[in-house]
């Protein structure tokens, strides 16, 4: 899945190693999945929660401010907020929401088509998809059912989140997101890795900290 710098919007093709040493444009170290590129989910996920629920100050600054309003809360709060959230998103593709918007990202994908041999090292040890937790089939199926109620939107949204979650798990088995707020950790994987996920968001965003920068923010 392609990634995008949350600071300047620079897009990295799927598997690019470039981002492991920080964004070449702005030096940022915070990246997010480009959700729009997931074919099957594009309808529901892409748009969605990540975009709206967050205070989405989008621009360049907000992502770097660490403890932003938890995306993790999104799944829970969705019930109340989703209806407005899900409607507008699909179309507004680019403009205001700038970097996050999926459509925009999709385009840049193709531009970056030169796929490097991926973080093959980082992914090589990943478990097969059948070993993955459960990408709750219930949620997915209910979402397909297209119930007219707000509940359907909620489930659709959560199915998208579930899929993103499982994809995240797929790439970074060292930390498995069982559900929002519930994690399983593979200590040996965490110990063995060069790069580390140090920030997780249940909507599929995460931060990879480049090893060199570990010391910088340590209080002395």
């Amino acid at each position: 899945m392609p990634h995008q710098c949350t600071n300047c919007g620079h897009v990295f093709p799927d598997g690019s190693k470039e981002m492991l040493s920080g964004c070449p444009d702005c030096g940022g170290n915070k990246f997010q999945f480009k959700q729009g590129s997931v074919d099957d989910v594009e309808a529901d996920t892409s748009d969605q929660p990540a975009g709206d629920s967050d205070p989405q100050p989008t621009g360049g600054s907000e992502p770097t401010s660490g403890p932003e309003p938890d995306a993790s809360t999104t799944p829970d709060t969705t019930a109340s907020t989703d209806s407005p959230a899900s409607d507008p998103t699909p179309s507004p593709e680019a403009p205001t929401d700038s970097e996050r918007s999926d459509a925009e990202l999709m385009e840049s994908d193709t531009a970056d088509a030169e796929e490097s041999p991926a973080q093959s090292s980082a992914r090589s040890d990943v478990v097969s998809s059948d070993e993955l937790p459960d990408s709750p089939p219930d949620a997915a199926s209910t979402a397909d059912a297209d119930e007219p109620t707000t509940e359907s939107e909620e489930t659709a949204e959560s199915s998208g989140l579930n899929q993103l979650r499982s994809e995240l798990n797929d790439q970074f088995e060292s930390i498995r997101i069982v559900s929002p707020g519930e994690y399983e950790l593979n200590l040996m994987e965490l110990y063995d890795r060069n790069e580390y996920i140090i920030s997780l968001r249940e909507d599929g965003r995460y931060i990879i900290e480049v090893p060199d920068s570990w010391d910088t923010d340590m209080p002395s």
């Binding site: 938890d70 993790s72 929002p180 707020g181 994690y183 950790l185 110990y191 997780l200």
Partner: peptide, 22 residues
């Protein structure tokens, strides 16, 4: 909400601890 945030931070903390150990 706060518990979920704590949980995530704790997870990050474990990753960090393992890094330091290495």
């Amino acid at each position: 909400d706060d518990a979920i945030r704590r949980s995530r931070e704790a997870t990050e903390g474990v990753a960090e601890a393992m890094h330091w150990l290495r």
